[in-house]
């Protein structure tokens, strides 16, 4: 981030880091999360899910600040972010975007629990 002057509390404030999780099969491709992500972490992917919609994918995994806006605005309960500690964030930034954006759990597991 670029600052026109260094904030006085620069040393105290810690920018939180988050990791976006996408439940691909629930997504209906409305694009709200892509439009309103303040850090432009997401883009619409070219791939289809089972229902034929384009889910979003993570392109700037390290830039997520865990603001939860995507989670709040998603009408399909299909995306959320979890906080990661700084050590993990460095790892997430280094990993491939596909790995960070992929559905962390198989859909069968979700059905079984419900």
């Amino acid at each position: 981030m670029k600052y026109w002057r260094k904030p006085l509390d620069f040393g105290d404030v810690k920018v939180p880091h988050g990791e976006v999780r996408i439940l691909v099969e629930r997504c209906k491709g409305c694009g709200f999360c892509v439009e309103y992500c303040p850090k432009d972490v997401l883009v619409m992917s070219e791939e289809f899910n089972k229902k034929g919609y384009h889910p979003p994918k993570v392109v700037k995994a390290g830039e997520c600040v865990n603001c939860n806006l995507c989670e709040m605005i998603c009408p399909d309960f299909a995306i959320f972010s979890v906080a990661v500690s700084d050590g993990d964030a460095a790892g997430a930034a280094g990993s491939s975007p596909e790995a960070a954006g992929a559905d962390p759990r198989p859909p069968e597991r979700e059905l079984r629990r419900a």
């Binding site: 709040m72 605005i73 009408p75």
Partner: peptide, 13 residues
């Protein structure tokens, strides 16, 4: 889930 509301409907929000 997924619910019956159309894509870009705001009721889910």
């Amino acid at each position: 889930m997924p619910h019956i509301w159309c894509p870009t409907c705001g009721i889910g929000t």
